[in-house]
Structure formats: structure tokens, C-alpha cells
Design a protein around this nucleic acid. Sequence first.
DNA 1: CTTTTCGTTCGATAATGTCGAACGCCATTC
DNA 2: GAATGGCGTTCGACATTATCGAACGAAAAG
Lengths: 254, 254
Amino acid sequence: MSDKLIQSVERAADILELFSLTESELSVKEISERLGLSKSTVHGLIKTLEHRGYLEQRLSDQKYKLGLRLFQLGNLVGGGMELRKVAYPIIQELVEKLHETVHMVVSDKDEVVYVEKLEGLGSLRMYSMVGKRAPMYCTGVGKAMLAFFEESAIERILQEVKFQKFTPYTLDTPDEIKQELRKIREQGYAIDDEEIEIGLKCVAAPIFNHEGTVVASISCAGPKHRFSDEKTAIVIQEVRSAGLEVSRKLGYRV
Amino acid sequence: MSDKLIQSVERAADILELFSLTESELSVKEISERLGLSKSTVHGLIKTLEHRGYLEQRLSDQKYKLGLRLFQLGNLVGGGMELRKVAYPIIQELVEKLHETVHMVVSDKDEVVYVEKLEGLGSLRMYSMVGKRAPMYCTGVGKAMLAFFEESAIERILQEVKFQKFTPYTLDTPDEIKQELRKIREQGYAIDDEEIEIGLKCVAAPIFNHEGTVVASISCAGPKHRFSDEKTAIVIQEVRSAGLEVSRKLGYRV
DNA sequence: CTTTTCGTTCGATAATGTCGAACGCCATTC
DNA sequence: GAATGGCGTTCGACATTATCGAACGAAAAG
């Protein structure tokens, strides 16, 4: 059937997506329990993924982890991104100027995915990591993209997303967020002031392609106590400038 | 059956592995022809992979490319590698000292996979790229690992590998290669002198773990004309030293 | 305007993937 | 040391799925 997906491929994807940074090794039993599948089913799927290099088994305790084939394919994705090639020197400059961590993200459904991260000196440990996802409605980088989506896409995303209050400052109602997005469109940048994480402040700007479509955003983030009003003004200017520079290199014309 | 793999999962993997840096977009028809599968079969597999984020379809011409989910999982693999965390500052030092490109690889069956690459100033464009695979028998990094494998593993790999002469200097018979591996074990480093690519020279050293098992290798590579006898001696010393430093940080004791 | 090509859908059916039972090995407990 | 328990692995029956050829529709090509 045309609307039907292939069950075994979905199950294989389920298995791969069980792994995370905090849970990098899993046994057959654990996978079977988490997915509600019988051990022999899981065993067949795992042996196939292992055979193709997507999983690796440690012989000492027979636990599985993600394999090098994913590393290879993941790097193909990253290495093929024109955006990253174009943006990287601009990101390096920004880090040198501002001495904070710079991120770049792209959107994927109702989330953003970090595609670049360069840490400045004195960086603190942060939630973000290249490859990781984050919500769109309450991160600087996410809001900087969302604000410039088409109205219909914004409506759909705000309907589908499951709002979660990460801190007391997290905006989590569609009306609040829409108001915020209007403001971002007016001023040309977004700010995450302790919405995703207490103590963390982030300034972000959208990146457009040659068609004027927002395809990414760039940000500068750091501990809130380092962001005086004066420094924040400088960061806003530099981040907006960087966003425009990357956009221009992608063919964007104001 | 226990030795049976799951066909649909293998076919999905086949599709993902059709993509490369030079061929980053494919149509349903192309995939169908390359794999010898009917278009409706390919369509079902592709729609499943797309739905899960492993493939993305460009709407303008309906071609497919690898999706962000692979980027995410690939970064999970890379981000979880203790080896990379431990080695990175040492690699940076090496680049600063030698002003050439430094690589690090791990092994995967009868090949090596580049897990780190840091380019020095004045680097030339090279075959290598993080995530990419290379043969073990005729690269510096590959030989630096192979030489320190167990005898049975060396035998097996030299039997299974399909030898290919990349340049007139490529060693491509088991006897020649074994002789070379003996020499590498004696001197503690490997050299690729235009075996994989004309004009390219590379010096590599093994990296051992706490059990004394070779788990990676590190190398310095550059255009052959920059490698005078004097400079080569310096590079050998620095690369061996770096290999040992990474090994020690992994718990290796001579 | 006609023809060709390709992506997509549909449904029959051959083939597969699923899973419960059983086994073997190893660790744990007594 | 023996018994028990847990988990990974194997096997085979069978219910269900994945496969693919035919057909369709849209867009491109001639």
C-alpha cells in the first residue's frame, strides 16, 4: 500500500534511535524490552545491522553500540553541506571576536539540529552538541528560524509541538510565542534569555538562501552574567552581520 | 534462521550506501536500476527512510539525498569516541609543530576509517576525509595498524582484501606486504611513499589501548617534495611520540 | 499536440519476518 | 561443587508483510 511503511526498516530505525550519549551501549534484552519486541525479533534485526556496520557488538559483555557505518554516512551528510563550508570561516571569526560559543542550526520538522559548534575560550559546558536536536519554540536559534517561516508553517509547528517548560522563563503558549516571533521579525534577531537553560543567554540571527527562504540560523551563546547590556548590543550586531554574510554567500539578496 | 539477515533492512542499507560525496542525489529510477529492484519496491523503502529522516526528498526534482538523522547518529558515534577526545589536543600540537595534515584512523574489517583530520597551513587537497574509508595494505595509517594485528588477523585480511594498484609504487602481493609489515614492527612506524596517491607521502604510528591492542593510528601527511630526509626524520620522531602519548592516555604501558 | 519517462498507487501472492519454545553458556546463588 | 537463573542464540510454523508487475497520472521531451 502506498501509505504503508516497511515495518522491519522502521524497527531497525527504532533500534538505532534508542542509543544516546548517556546510553551508548545496550543489550539484546534491553532493546527487546524498550521496544516491546521479542528477543528473537530483535536478534535478527541487530545481526543485520551489525553485519552492515551500523551496530557493533562488544564481545566481553555482548552489548551493542552504534557502528562506524553511521559515522561514515553522518560525515557524508555533514561534508556535503554547502552551508557548513560557506559558514565555517565566518563562525571562526565570530568566535575570535566575541570569545563565546557560536552555533549554527538547520531545521528538521519542528526542531532544530546543530550542524556547527565552535567554542570560545572559557566556554561553559552546554546542552548543545553537533548533531543534537533542540526545540524550535524556546531556543534562540530555533526562534530565529521559526520567525521567518511561512505563516502556515508556523501555525502547523505551534499546533504539533509538545510544549515543555524547561525553565520558569520558557514561553509555552502559542500566543506568547507568536508575539515573540513578531518582535524577532521586526528587530531581525532572536534572544534566548534563560528559556532553555538557567544561566544561559543566546543571541541568534536567521540565514537565508538565494530564494529568501530561511535555511539556518547562527548564534552566539554564553553565561548570562557575561552578557552586560553593552556586550549584548555588540553581540547582536556581530551575529546579525554574520547571519547576513552567510546569507549573501548562499546567494541571498536583500 | 539464525544465519539469515533481514532482507528489507539490508535493502535499506543498500540504498543509503549508494550515496557518496560525488553522487549526493539520486532518483527512484536510478536507485531502482543500481540495485536491480523494482521501482515500487524502492519507493516503499525510500518512503520509510524518508519518514524516519534518513533520506530527504528535494521537491523541485524529486531527487533524494541522505537525511539529518544520519548526521545526528553519525555525530553520536563520533562524540562518544573516547579516542577522539583524548587525541584531539595532541593532534592539534602535531599540526602546529609540523605544519602538515594529521590524520587518525580506526580499523573496520579490512579497511581503515578516518576519524580525525586536521589540516596544516598550505595543505593540498587530499583523498582523505573524516568518515571516509581507505585500504589498509597500502596507506601509512593502514599499515601502521595492520603490522600490529595478530598474525591470524593479518593472514585473514591479506586473504580477503582485493588488491588494487593505485600507483606504480603500491605493494600488492601478500609476500611484499608481509615483508613491509615486519619492517614496520621493527622500526615502530609506517611510511606510505606514493602508494595510495602519486606525490603524497605519509608517516604513521600505531596507537595502543590499555590491553596493548592496536586500536588506531596517527599520521602526518603532505606533498612528497616537502619531505626532505631531514624533515622526514623529524616527522617520524614526532609522529611516534604522538602515537605513544595517545596510547598512554588510553592506559597503554610499555 | 503527441509521445515518453518517471514517480506513485494498487492488489495478488510468494516469500519473509515474527515470535514462542527450547537450548546452551555463563554468572550467580546456595 | 551443584543447582538455578538469566540472557543470547537458534529453530521452525505460520500469519503477515514486502515484493513487483500493471496501471495511472503528471510532467518533460520531441
